[in-house]
């Protein structure tokens, strides 16, 4: 771990100003950043601790939306009665993530910017374009069981590890950002994370010093919400594949559907194709299979992760069955 200086931010604009200095970065729960600093994958010279800023509230907005402060703990959001009632897919995704201890410590904002768990990213002796641009991708041709099957590039096949973001994806969440110049902008979650392309080290649209201040959930769409996470063990493992779905049916016909996958790409993978293949169709397995085929049409395996393609199809079908049954 490189030596660094530390300050506890006392106000939001001051924190942004402090973090826009070269070498500075925000720290909140630190559940990912500290590991990365010990391995010198992240080497900040200055940490701006924003965990105690007054950004942890969950508030209802006048238009029926819910505003989740970026410093709210993952566990608090998961347990919030408004989230559990109106956005159960988010609550389910949050409790499926990490462990109880980590959820208590990890913030919503931090969850959105956590780094991949590709083992080569963490092995400083291995080539990794995300860690060290231009050094190659060791996962290609290496151990890539957990890697991406959609949207990957020749530079990077890493996945985004977040469960929470997958649920937010089907909720059309907006990320509220505050820049060092005090300007505020909102970014759709669909636009917040980037595909790797040839710049896999640039993972989000965040600018230097820009702070995630909140996540805004619009009023929930009709239909039943479900989050299904598939993994080797029952807890404390990142998703091999996950599905977030919101499905509404009307007399046996799917009236609306939203679908996103986790664990398959460099970002939460909302599938507009699958949604189109579902909407207006009968709520039957044939429809779900067709949607699953469509969703995975462009999927490409690396060998060891080929199974994820079929696993994603199967998981989607089962999640849709369950969502449609109850909606």
């Amino acid at each position: 771990m490189r030596p660094f200086t530390y300050e506890r931010a006392t106000d939001v604009p001051g924190a942004c100003a402090a973090a826009s200095r070269p070498g500075a970065t925000f720290i909140s729960g630190g559940t990912n950043l500290l590991d990365l600093m010990k391995l010198e994958i992240e080497r900040p010279s200055h940490l701006v601790d924003i965990s105690r800023l007054p950004l942890a509230d969950v508030d209802e907005l006048q238009d029926g939306a819910l505003r989740i402060g970026a410093q709210a703990a993952n566990s608090d959001v998961a347990a919030d009665p408004r989230v559990r009632t109106r956005y159960p897919v988010l609550s389910q995704a949050l409790v499926a993530g990490a462990s109880g201890q980590l959820r208590n410590k990890a913030s919503v904002g931090g969850n959105l910017v956590q780094r991949t768990r590709c083992p080569y990213f963490y092995d400083t002796a291995a080539g990794c374009n995300k860690r060290d641009p231009g050094s190659g991708c060791s996962a290609i041709g290496g151990f890539n069981r957990i890697h991406a099957v959609l949207g990957a590039s020749d530079s990077c096949i890493a996945t985004n590890p977040s469960d929470m973001a997958v649920a937010m994806s089907v909720l059309d969440a907006q990320i509220e950002l505050l820049d060092a110049d005090r300007s505020v902008r909102r970014v759709d979650i669909a636009d917040f994370h980037r595909l790797p392309g040839d710049t896999p080290h640039v993972e989000t649209v965040l600018r230097p010093g820009e702070m995630i201040t909140a996540v805004i959930l619009p009023p929930p769409p009709p239909g039943r919400q479900l989050y299904r996470k598939v993994r080797d063990r029952a807890s404390y493992e990142f998703a091999l594949v996950s599905v977030a779905a919101i499905v509404a049916t009307d007399r046996g016909t799917i009236s609306s559907a939203r679908v996103a996958f986790g664990g398959v790409a460099h970002k939460p993978w909302r599938s507009a194709d699958a949604e189109a293949a579902l909407t207006g169709r009968p709520a039957t397995m044939a429809t779900y299979r067709a949607a699953a085929e469509t969703a995975m049409r462009d999927a490409v395996g690396q060998g060891q992760n080929d199974f994820k393609i079929d696993l994603a199809r199967r998981t989607l079908c089962r999640t849709l069955v369950q969502a449609a049954q109850a909606s």
Binding site: A125, S138, G142, F143
Partner: peptide, 8 residues
């Protein structure tokens, strides 16, 4: 390629 363990 390296002979090292990956999942460490």
């Amino acid at each position: 390629r390296s002979g090292g363990f990956v999942n460490r």
